[in-house]
């Protein structure tokens, strides 16, 4: 099977959509001439022209609002918000309009609208540029939030998103663009709302998404050296949230650690842990544990930033502290 990087997988999905659906167009800051801040849309302007690859001013609220309006008007816009930190300027449009129009109109309207955005820390960009706000969006009824960690999932989810008639926040972790993985030539989709067991195990379950899924896989490799078999679940979608996959795993392993970069109260962990406690209480040998980013703004200094983000040693410590494994 051919290998692609996560960036290439997203490019392929976007190109497919542009090729096959005349209502699809892209807009965002520097997506055209510059090729995208993370080079995802490099060359698209030449290939598809300025009608469909639209460079916008730095006007997040207007871009997202225009995305909503054009979706209402029969188009299928894909907006790139350069990073999720800047989505705060568009949050009113996203939360008050995109997420509400279907409901408030009693089902008369849909907003088939994809917002691609870059999230996560670890690159030394400090407090305003390193946030993981996907969990906030996942708290909003009316929105969907997906977060692929592999090229395969990136393409499969993108295809599913572009068939879905809702507003979807499609998250791309800044440090995962170069991750390589197999992507079949044959058409496939990854359904929205379905988690995946990325590594089977029997002794405990590590649940994460995005970059955290990679860290959990590495940690599982370390644990295996000591004879501890960790099952690793990649949530892939944060809303709607697949509870069945983690529950099935817990019935087997009886222990789970949720790992994420977001602040302890901002991510998916608190809600997921509550649901797992509620629905799998009788199976648990220990309370569900949660390893999140530090409950602080992101620091610039490298040594502090390292302390602020979950890494493999922190996962191993959390496994030892919580489960004695």
């Amino acid at each position: 099977m051919p290998e692609l990087t996560l960036r290439e997988a997203i490019r392929r999905g976007l190109q497919e959509a542009l090729d096959q659906d005349p209502t699809v167009f892209l807009m965002g800051e520097d997506v055209g001439a510059y090729g995208g801040a993370y080079a995802v849309t490099k060359g698209f302007l030449r290939q598809y022209g300025p009608e469909r690859i639209r460079d916008t001013p730095i006007s997040e609220s207007a871009i997202v609002g225009a995305g909503i309006g054009s979706a209402l008007g029969g188009m299928r816009p894909i907006v790139e918000i350069m990073t999720i930190n800047f989505s705060l300027l568009a949050m009113d449009q996203i939360v008050n309009h995109a997420a509400k129009l279907r409901y408030m109109s009693g089902g008369q309207f849909a907003v088939p609208f994809l917002i691609r955005t870059v999230t996560g820390g670890g690159a030394g960009l400090a407090a305003t540029h390193s946030q993981s706000l996907e969990g906030w969006y996942a708290s909003v009824p009316g929105l969907k939030v997906v977060f692929p960690s592999t090229p395969y999932d990136a393409l499969g989810l993108l295809r599913a998103c572009l068939k879905d008639n809702n507003t979807i926040i499609y998250c791309e972790h800044a440090l995962l663009y170069g991750v390589r993985g197999e992507v079949p030539d044959a058409y496939y989709e990854v359904p929205i709302g379905r988690a995946e067991v990325k590594r089977p195990g029997r002794d405990l379950t590590l649940i994460s998404y995005g970059r955290g899924a990679h860290l959990c896989l590495q940690a599982a490799g370390e644990l295996a050296k000591r004879g501890v078999e960790a099952e690793v679940i990649d949530l892939r979608t944060l809303r709607p949230l697949d509870l069945e996959t983690p529950l099935a795993s817990l019935r087997k392993t009886h222990r789970a650690l949720i790992v994420e970069e977001a602040w302890p109260r901002a991510g998916i962990g608190p809600y997921l842990a509550m649901r797992l406690h509620q629905d799998a209480f009788d199976y648990l040998d220990a309370p569900i544990a949660h390893l999140a980013g530090a409950d602080t703004p992101a620091p610039y200094a490298r040594n502090l930033e390292r302390l602020a983000l979950p890494d493999v040693p922190a996962i191993l410590r959390a496994v030892a502290d919580n489960f004695g494994l």
Partner: peptide, 23 residues
Amino acid sequence: GKGGSMHLFDARLNFMGGYAIVG
């Protein structure tokens, strides 16, 4: 060391900061 290049501050100079969100 907490702000980095984009977020310089110096209260003594009434230098009220570098702001990294455009506008």
